[in-house]
Lab assay of single mutants.
Amino acid sequence: MPVRRGHVAPQNTFLDTIIRKFEGQSRKFIIANARVENCAVIYCNDGFCELCGYSRAEVMQRPCTCDFLHGPRTQRRAAAQIAQALLGAEERKVEIAFYRKDGSCFLCLVDVVPVKNEDGAVIMFILNFEVVMEKDMVGSPAHDTNHRGPPTSWLAPGRAKTFRLKLPALLALTARESSVRSGGAGGAGAPGAVVVDVDLTPAAPSSESLALDEVTAMDNHVAGLGPAEERRALVGPGSPPRSAPGQLPSPRAHSLNPDASGSSCSLARTRSRESCASVRRASSADDIEAMRAGVLPPPPRHASTGAMHPLRSGLLNSTSDSDLVRYRTISKIPQITLNFVDLKGDPFLASPTSDREIIAPKIKERTHNVTEKVTQVLSLGADVLPEYKLQAPRIHRWTILHYSPFKAVWDWLILLLVIYTAVFTPYSAAFLLKETEEGPPATECGYACQPLAVVDLIVDIMFIVDILINFRTTYVNANEEVVSHPGRIAVHYFKGWFLIDMVAAIPFDLLI
């Protein structure tokens, strides 16, 4: 008679799926529990143990900040960024110097990925580790590398530091407007667009060049630039800015003055950032001319202004700041037409079709709590990747769950009947059967004279019903998954307890 339990259901295979997918890609990662103190490590794979030199037993239950890997060259700011990422709910990448158990130093890129439950609360953290440099290539500990984003994938490793954006290309926007319009339909740009040429040739750093990471940081200074100062900065030398009595002219307006920039070969870094931020506020060169004239017309309804409409929906549905990093990277690809469009465009503009998908598509409701890094690593669709929660398995109709209350009560009843059979069957065979043979035949009273025979008949009927119930009862397979398919249940029961239950259900007393 089957006594099969499996009270692990309803099970959740999400954690096993993450481990299996990460292991298949030869990654070095740990999984931490966000619900406990210090976000203790609950799993670390073999790749991480080989990377740091510690065994799994030495890593388990330690804080996922990996303070046991810190050393003299470990930056405090990087460690603080990892700790801050564990307090938030967004994906974050941090470069930090770690030390192995043998004392060797290596520069590592740590990717902190939160995993949320159905309520939107962070319950786990996945920390992925990628070695960037070994100890002989690690720089000085005073050099802070965590304020910069990861290198873009479309640049060669040897040319990542030679990417320079020439400031004269930004200063000569109005001069290039006529050349853009003359391109017409034969050019790649839309009317009114501004073409910015980027020099990728390796050259020595000069005062006129600005690194790509500095251009990325310009967006942080746009908020500090007032509207009046932006307007004066875009007017140009024809209309000098008016300053109040006793007030000095704005240095932001002076930063885009061609006369002032041409007199000296070098520009201050602050002026460069502010000038680029001011130019980015204009949607095209037409807006710059309109600002000089004193009238700013409404933005025209053409394809170039609607190019950012799908980007707005993608940004609203993005799951991490990696989408913004990807957008900034692609927006700086050289030799393309940049349409400086305000994100607050007309909502009635139709979304044009684009061959290049900048932001990841909208994630469906079932995966809105899973970050983009987890979705990318697992390579699963929205119909396959579940949320991290207890999910009731989908069972067929008329199927009994093996952990249901009805099955528990039924098993206790069958257990009592088995005990009765084990006690009274030998007793009936030894004593009652002998008395029946010696006594007179009682054929007239039937079952009324033999109450134990009636009980034995009921017990046999219950055993037959138990066999039928076992054909529709779920079970737990070797992978700790609840199986509810009727065919698989029948095959599993035939290979197991079916023969024993059938022999126990045969009414031998009635056959004798």
Rank of each mutant, 00 (worst) to 15 (best):
G6T: 13
H7K: 06
A9R: 14
P10I: 09
T13N: 09
L15Y: 07
T17L: 13
E23Q: 06
G24C: 09
Q25C: 14
R27W: 10
I30E: 01
V36T: 13
N38W: 01
C39P: 13
A40V: 11
V41P: 01
C44G: 01
G47K: 08
L51W: 04
P63D: 06
C66T: 01
H70E: 01
P72K: 06
R73K: 12
Q75L: 07
R76C: 15
Q84G: 09
A89C: 13
V94S: 04
E95M: 13
I96F: 01
F98D: 01
K101W: 01
K101P: 01
K101F: 01
K101G: 01
D102E: 07
S104T: 14
C108Q: 01
K116E: 06
K116D: 06
K116A: 08
E118I: 06
G120E: 15
G120C: 07
A121K: 14
L127K: 01
V131D: 15
E134S: 11
G139V: 13
S140C: 07
S140M: 15
P141N: 14
T152N: 03
W154I: 08
R159K: 14
R159D: 11
L165E: 13
K166W: 07
L167H: 15
A175G: 15
E177N: 13
S178D: 06
A188D: 06
G189L: 15
G189T: 05
A193M: 15
V194Y: 07
S206V: 09
S207W: 15
S209R: 04
A211F: 13
L212W: 09
A217C: 15
M218A: 15
N220H: 06
V222T: 06
A223K: 14
E230D: 06
G236V: 15
G236Y: 15
G236Q: 01
R242H: 10
A244N: 14
P245C: 07
L248G: 12
S250V: 15
R252P: 05
R252D: 15
R252C: 15
A253Y: 10
A253L: 14
S261G: 11
S261N: 05
G262R: 11
S263N: 05
S264P: 04
S264E: 11
C265T: 09
S266N: 01
R269M: 12
R271Q: 13
V279N: 11
R280Q: 14
S284L: 13
A285F: 14
D286M: 06
E289Q: 06
A290C: 13
G294A: 10
L296K: 14
P297E: 08
P298I: 05
H302Q: 07
T305D: 07
G306D: 10
M308H: 05
R312E: 06
G314E: 09
S318R: 12
S320I: 14
D321K: 09
D321P: 10
L324G: 07
V325T: 14
Y327Q: 12
T337A: 15
N339L: 01
D342L: 01
L349C: 04
L349A: 09
E357C: 14
I358E: 07
I358P: 12
K362E: 10
I363D: 09
H368L: 14
V370L: 08
E372Q: 12
V374G: 01
Q376L: 03
V377T: 03
L380P: 01
A382W: 15
L385S: 09
L385D: 04
P386K: 03
